[in-house]
Design a binder for these strands. Structure first.
Length: 817
RNA sequence: GCCCGGAUGGUGGAAUGGUAGACACAGGGGACUUAAAAUCCCCCGACUAUUGCAGUCGUGCUGGUUCAAGUCCAGUUCCGGGCACCA
């Protein structure tokens, strides 16, 4: 019978399903592996990126099952979100119908790819049961002060008609639809992720061996910790009077206290209270007020184009010199960082320099390079030696930083402070298809939590989705309710939660089976066993989104007493993108390849083999139709050549010494491939080299005629390749080995040793020949034979040094006589 | 601007400091066939030479360390990614 992928694959998919082959065991005495891939949004169909993601995690899961581990390899759907609503607007479908139809279709695709997911733990985050417990956490977090509501200036996407978190703004545009975001003042709920900023940063050290460096760096930069000095500038007497004594002083933050004697002006953000007061009370001329207004209204991108500012006609007192310094408003000062006010040192900061040049403000240099001349045409931002800095003159600038902070602290006019770029996570969204925030606004009692026994606060199904406004808010009845506290008329919160809240804890839910899901959000006993996730596989685009939020939730849950570990994901593998014709596959570029078509034409095994063979998983993968063809040919050959294998339920015992050269070579190739395979799962993740090893072994096996060797080879190779091409390996294994070979394979050492080894001979490091030498020769003998081999290169030369690298090469160092 | 990666044949990619280009794809040649497909075999970095099957060069570039460098170090160019007026 020739290879018929569709028949073979359907047969085994049915078999696995009927035998519940991929359900984890409840025997907690077994060693475990939790293999998780980032769950998909149910957009409709799988794309090649999904196939790559799940092929990788499936290889891990299948490998560890063979090694005797109890493996949890679950899948679910991150099923709330905008696209469901956009589809509703476009086609008039209901978001729920659209979502669950897509889930059904995608589940079939998973099935047809042979992924070994636990079917009994599948979930969708839009399930009401999931919402119920999530809303419970929201209430817990509110009570702990980790969730709060405040009026603020928010990122608003005019296209999606919703607020976005900072992490969801990419280059000033919406992460989903690329529309430039605008700032909008509104009420919003925030998670106090900043409370965990320091731990989120320091615990990155725990992930150093398991996470890609790039992701660690991205999180580190995102958290953006900086140490410095915080102190107050007092307003001059006249200025206080001008401001009707409403303001005495304001705070600034600097990481360069060593430049303090170079301050020549001070700048405020346009949103600063003092600026607001000056504008509101007409203490500035009309022009100035309108310029400040423009600054506030311009987007972040516009603000970066050119520095601009206005003098406020107010002076402040330098805390150390007592000199008076002018106060400006400047568009490059950000209200959301530090205190929204900076001391400006144009001589030693490029931004301050540009601003000072534009408005002809004075420069005062106070640091000079250690070993070169100061260039007064630019800002000198490097370290150096202080001058014109009173008692600190002469100090190295790095040393001076600490000294000056100390000085401020002694005088009690400032203190050492740490600032973070990380902002609190804004989580409310003005959309329908999300988990409702379980709060109620009561005129009498204010903001009230829904009672936990009333959860979930479910979405209404009769909904009008037009794309205009918040559908929940516009619903005729849904938001009207009674206050859980006083029983009076009240109104439900109509904002829903960011979908990243759902993906921040789904991995905990998977730890228990469905029977438990009704009772509790997750089982602490099961979590103790299954967590942490051993291998997490997904795209790098979540480096500062999902992966940061999930770490945050884990720490919060720990502090709420739900879990007892600090980090959810021990090892992270970020897979590269799938490209075609050099560009990321996308519908708009028209360069997509539909997984369903590939499966129909070649089968799932071919798709999986190609994906793992064409590139290491962390690199970009260039789709190549003829290489897919090649993968198919390999499987076909692998199947065809199994004809010579005989039936057995144990690995054949072979007397290695009686084999001929080709037979020995074939065995050696098989075992070498096996050794490579173990390495792959432990740390290298280079499935491509593992598969190459298997191909080499196959080539060697078919170049010899010993059926024992062939059978042993297939016993090992079908086991080794099962994680990659499971269907055909099961087919072959069932036919010959009664499925007894899916097990951890022992290495036979004698196979790896051969009677002779090829040595390379080099002279002065240059390759000059090679020689086959029997094992066990002394170095002198080896050198003697090697010299004979390359004698023509030694004429007229004296040998200075002789080096023998065992089993590799001989290097002779020579010079002319 | 700052911080990470990366650069190897026509292509994807291999190489614990030890014979660069494994394994594939594409390409070329051949066998089988009436023919095609499938399959099998051979060649396949560049240049020079040659029917003595040998030599020279070669992992972006310039240096360095070493008996030996794609690999380590310093510098440099280009490409990709992240952050970005963060005081």
């Amino acid at each position: 019978m020739s290879y018929d992928p569709s028949a073979v694959e359907q047969k085994w998919q049915k078999y696995w399903s009927e035998n519940r082959s991929f359900e984890p065991s409840d025997n907690f005495d077994l060693p475990k592996k939790y293999i998780l891939s980032m769950f998909p949004f149910p957009s409709g169909r799988l794309h090649m990126g999904h196939v790559r993601n799940y092929t990788i995690s499936d290889a891990f899961a299948r490998f560890y099952r063979q090694q005797g581990f109890n493996v949890l390899h679950p899948i679910g759907f991150d099923s709330f979100g905008m696209p469901a609503e956009n589809a509703a607007i476009k086609n008039g479908s209901h978001p729920k119908t659209w979502t669950y139809d897509n889930i059904d279709y995608m589940k079939k695709e998973f099935y047809s790819l042979g992924f070994s997911f636990s079917k009994e733990r599948e979930l969708a985050t839009s399930d009401e049961l999931y919402t119920k417990f999530e809303q419970g956490f929201i209430i817990d977090m509110y009570e702990k002060g980790l969730l709060y509501r405040k009026e603020g200036l928010l990122n608003w996407c005019p296209h999606d008609q919703t607020v976005l978190a900072n992490e969801q703004v990419i280059d000033g545009c919406c992460w989903r639809c690329d529309t430039p975001i605008v700032k909008k003042e509104m009420n919003q709920y925030y998670f106090k992720i900043t409370q965990y900023a320091d731990e989120l940063l320091s615990d990155l050290a725990k992930l150093e061996n398991g996470w890609p460096k790039q992701v660690l760096t991205m999180q580190e930069n995102w958290i953006g910790k900086s140490n410095g000095l915080e102190f107050d500038f007092e307003l001059s007497k006249e200025s206080k009077a001008k401001l009707n004594d409403k303001f005495n002083s304001f705070t600034v933050f600097t990481t360069r206290p060593d430049t303090i004697y170079g301050v020549t002006y001070v700048a405020l953000a346009p949103e600063h209270d003092i600026v607001k007061y000056l504008c509101d009370n007409n203490l500035l001329d009309k022009d100035a007020i309108s310029q400040i207004k423009d600054m506030k209204n311009s987007s972040n991108i516009d603000r970066q184009k050119e520095k601009s500012g206005v003098s406020l006609g107010v002076d402040v007192i330098h805390p150390l010199t007592g000199q008076s310094v002018p106060l400006w408003v400047a568009n490059f000062v950000l209200i959301e960082y530090g205190s929204g006010a900076v001391m400006a040192v144009p001589a030693h900061d490029e931004r301050d320099f540009d601003f000072a040049k534009k408005y002809s403000l004075p420069l005062k240099y106070v640091i000079k390079p250690n070993d070169s001349e100061l260039n007064k045409n630019e800002a000198y931002t490097e370290a150096g030696v202080l001058f014109d800095s009173n008692e600190f003159s002469g100090f190295d600038s790095n040393e001076a930083k600490g000294k000056i902070i100390e000085y401020f602290e002694t005088l009690k006019i400032g203190k050492k402070t740490t600032n973070y770029k990380l902002k609190d996570w804004g989580v409310s969204r003005q959309r329908y298809w999300g988990a409702p925030i379980p709060f109620i606004h009561c005129q009498k009692c204010g903001l009230v939590m829904e009672k936990k026994e009333n959860l979930p606060v479910a979405l209404p199904s009769d909904i009008d989705i037009t794309g205009e406004g918040n559908p929940l808010d516009l619903h005729p009845t849904w938001k009207y309710c009674k206050c859980p506290k006083c029983g009076g008329d009240a109104i439900r919160e109509t904002d829903t939660m960011d979908t990243f809240v759902e993906s921040s804890w789904y991995f905990l839910r998977f730890c228990a089976d469905k029977t438990n899901w009704e009772k509790e959000p997750f089982s602490s006993e099961q979590i103790k066993y299954w967590m942490e996730v051993d291998h997490y596989i997904g795209g790098i685009e979540h480096a500062v989104l999902h992966l940061l939020y999930a770490r945050f939730f884990t720490k919060v849950f720990r502090d709420l007493g739900y879990v007892d570990f600090d980090e959810p994901f021990l090892r992270l593998l970020t897979q590269g993108m799938v490209l075609k014709d050099g560009a990321k596959m996308s519908k708009s570029k028209g360069n997509t390849v539909d997984p369903d078509e590939i499966i129909a034409k070649y089968g799932a095994d071919t798709a999986r083999l190609f994906i793992l063979f064409a590139a290491p998983p962390t690199q970009e993968l260039e789709w190549n139709d003829s290489a897919v063809e090649g993968a198919f040919r390999f499987i076909k050959r692998f199947y065809d050549k199994s004809n010579g294998v005989y039936k057995t339920t144990t690995k054949p015992a072979i007397d290695h010494s009686k084999l001929n050269k080709d037979e020995k070579f074939a065995r050696k190739k098989v075992y070498e491939a096996l050794i490579r395979a173990t390495d792959v799962y432990n740390n290298k993740y280079t499935f491509n080299t593992m598969i190459a090893g298997a191909m080499e072994a196959m080539n060697a096996l078919t170049s010899q005629n010993n059926s024992d060797v062939l059978t042993e080879g297939y016993w090992i190779l079908t086991s080794m390749l099962e994680p990659v091409i499971p269907h055909i390996c099961h087919e072959i294994s069932q036919k010959y080995f009664n499925l007894k070979n899916f097990d951890s394979q022992e290495i036979v050492d004698e196979v790896l040793q051969s009677d002779s080894i090829k040595y390379g001979i080099s002279i002065n490091g240059k390759n000059r020949g090679e020689i086959e030498l029997t094992i066990g020769l002394s170095n002198d003998e080896i050198i003697h034979l090697a010299k004979a081999e390359v004698s023509k290169w030694l004429e007229g030369m004296t040998i200075v040094k002789e080096i023998v690298v065992p089993n590799k090469l001989i290097n002779l160092v020579v010079k002319p006589c």
